Every structure is written in structure tokens, then in C-alpha cells.
Amino acid sequence: MRADQILHPTDAGLYCPPGDFHIDPIRPVARALITHAHGDHARAGHGAVMATRQTLEIMAIRYGEDFAGQRQVADGPTRIGDTTVSFHPAGHILGSAQIAVQPRSGPKIVVSGDYCRRANPVCAPFQPVPCDVFVTEATFGLPVFRHPDPAGEMVRLLASMVEFPDRPHLIGAYVLGKAQRLIVLAREAGIAGPIAIHGALQRLCDYHAEQGIDLGELIPATAADVPAQLVIAPPSAFASPWVQRFRDPVIGFASGWMAVRARARQRGVELPLVISDHVDWPQVTATIRELAPEQVWITHGAEDGLLRWCELQGIPARPLRLVGYEDEPE
């Protein structure tokens, strides 16, 4: 059986005929395997969903307990139709996983979803999984993207807080994964006092704490006189009246896209923090070299740049050109 007979793109997303399931489908399907709970990969309305326990629990928080007809926790290799599937840590956010698909006969395919090779204190590290075909994201799949050490970005944040002690620092961060990672990085950098959070972050921060991730003292950012110099909110909050309660704030944003200074200027970001939960160019190319798959399939981003790199390395590659995936919607 050829790889494209095991898994191929459709209007609904990646489909596996021998297992009769989709991976991260963008519309409701009968059976979905979900890599992680970001809204551009995990949607409600499927007949059945298989994912890690944490991903299923986060989906229930975000979409309600009835987000799918049935749920199944991914726990070890599982037979589905004429395939065996298994879930392996992706290092992206809490509960994130790569999905390995092994047919009865034919190549083994690993769908990485979104993944990161840099240490992330709020989730399990990426686990390299040997495979014949590796499906990789290319969110930052251009040589210009070389993300700095997050600890160094936190040094910049602390320096700004020292330089402007009377100005609240409002940092935009996606509500799931990035916000909690930013809080832990701030704690590791020495911020011991209360950190204020927008109400949209509360339930997911509570869930991370329930999973044993120490976020320290968090207080609601509900008043103009919040007793915390550091405030974390979803990016959408900065376009709402909520931000007007803060006097002369330093506006920041934590994202890999802050490496593009034009994006920071367009958003009015005074303190861009280049902190990404995706692989950058050195990480994605190093991962492909490490796995040494027979084929690379590329999706979610700058497909053409990574396609050209694979060609120069003599690695057969193809773009999947899936639609409907982007940064976590806010």
C-alpha cells in the first residue's frame, strides 16, 4: 500500500481510508483523531474523537461536555480498521501529540501536528518517532525564522518592568499554551509576586494548575488599580474597551511572529517577545535530518521554502496545501 493510499488530503482535512478516520479535520466528520486542543485543529461536532486525555478535557472546557458524540482516550497503540495508531508527545502545548499511523502493510506515517523542540515547562517534550513518512508543519518554515532562547526574552521583559516601574505591562498571549508558558517563564525569571490575568485565561490556567503545573499567585485583571505590574491577556483584548482601564501601559505580545518587526508595528506592540511554541527553521530541518524519513509531507505554513530545502537534501517531499489552519484563533 502506498503512502497516499494510507493518508491523503481532502476538503475536510487529512483522511485515512484504511482506518476510516480524519486527523484534525476542519469540519465535522464521523471519526476524528485530534493532535491538540487549539481551535484550528480541534473542533466540536464530530461523531467520535480520539485524543490524549488532556486534549479531551481541554476540548470539554472550551466547547462543552457534549463537544462530540463519543470520546476515546489515546492510551497505547490502538487498532482502527486496517491501521494501528499511537499518540506521542509533540512539545507544543499541554496534551499535544503526534499521531503515528501504521497500516497492516505499507509505510508508517507520523503526523506531527504542531510541535516544538525547545523545552516547554507546561507540556511533555517532543518525542522523535521513527517513520517512513513525516508530516511536518512549516509555520516558521523559512531560514529567516531563528527563534531566540525564551529566557533571554524574559530578561528583556524584566528589564522593561524595572525601567518603567509605574507602567503596567500588558502582554498578549494565546489563551491555551502560550499564556501558561509565559507565566511559568516569568516565575523562572524571578517574578514572584502576583500576575494578573484576563478572565478568558482563568479556566485554562486553573486546569493547568490541576495538572500539577505551578503558576504561582494569579489575580483577576478586573480593575484599573490591579496590584500587579504584569498582566497577561488574549490578543483580542487589546482591541476591546478592556484595555482602557490601564493607564499608560507597555503593550507586549509573546509570539514567534514578533520576529517580524512589521507585524509588531502593525499591532502597536512596544515590547515584542519572540516566544514560539512551534519549530523554527533550524529545529524543523534538524528534526527531518534526525528522523531521516523516506518522504516528507509539508503543511501549515511556508511549504515552498521547506519543499526547496528537502529537494536540495535529496529528500522526496510534497506540499499538502491543507486549508483552514492558522495561529490559534482568538
Results as ranks from 00 to 15, higher is better:
282 P>Y: 10
323 V>R: 03
204 L>P: 00
124 A>L: 14
117 R>P: 02
33 L>Y: 04
13 G>V: 04
5 Q>L: 15
187 R>H: 11
81 G>I: 06
15 Y>R: 08
195 I>W: 02
291 L>V: 15
216 G>Y: 04
74 A>F: 05
107 P>W: 04
177 G>S: 11
297 W>M: 09
270 E>M: 11
278 H>K: 07
109 I>C: 02
193 G>S: 10
279 V>A: 14
48 A>K: 13
218 L>H: 08
68 A>F: 02
234 P>K: 03
54 Q>D: 15
79 R>N: 05
59 M>Q: 05
313 Q>N: 06
53 R>I: 12
18 P>E: 01
303 E>A: 13
231 V>L: 14
92 H>S: 11
162 V>T: 12
136 T>Q: 05
55 T>G: 09
202 Q>E: 11
39 G>A: 14
129 V>K: 00
221 A>T: 13
260 V>G: 03
45 G>Q: 03
98 Q>R: 03
152 G>T: 08
65 E>D: 15
237 A>N: 06
249 P>T: 04
205 C>K: 06
43 R>G: 10
101 V>S: 02
195 I>C: 08
3 A>W: 02
93 I>H: 01
165 P>E: 05
42 A>L: 05
209 A>N: 07
146 R>Y: 03
286 A>W: 09
227 P>A: 06
89 P>N: 12
69 G>T: 12
180 Q>M: 13
139 T>Q: 05
160 S>Q: 12
143 P>L: 10
236 S>D: 08
328 E>N: 09
45 G>N: 09
236 S>M: 07
74 A>M: 08
297 W>L: 15
228 A>H: 03
259 A>E: 08
85 V>G: 05
261 R>M: 10
4 D>Y: 06
52 T>F: 01
317 A>H: 04
218 L>E: 13
322 L>A: 09
330 E>F: 09
286 A>P: 14
36 H>W: 12
174 Y>K: 11
247 R>K: 09
58 I>T: 08
250 V>G: 01
82 D>A: 11
128 P>V: 10
158 L>E: 04
327 D>F: 07
216 G>F: 02
173 A>C: 03
25 P>G: 12
102 Q>E: 13
242 W>Y: 07
44 A>C: 11
91 G>N: 09
143 P>G: 12
157 L>V: 15
26 I>Y: 03
318 R>I: 00
27 R>N: 04
315 I>C: 13
51 A>P: 02
257 W>R: 14
153 E>Q: 15
54 Q>K: 10
136 T>A: 15
72 Q>N: 00
196 A>W: 01
123 C>T: 14
198 H>I: 08
213 I>V: 15
290 E>N: 12
252 G>I: 03
55 T>W: 06
137 E>Y: 00
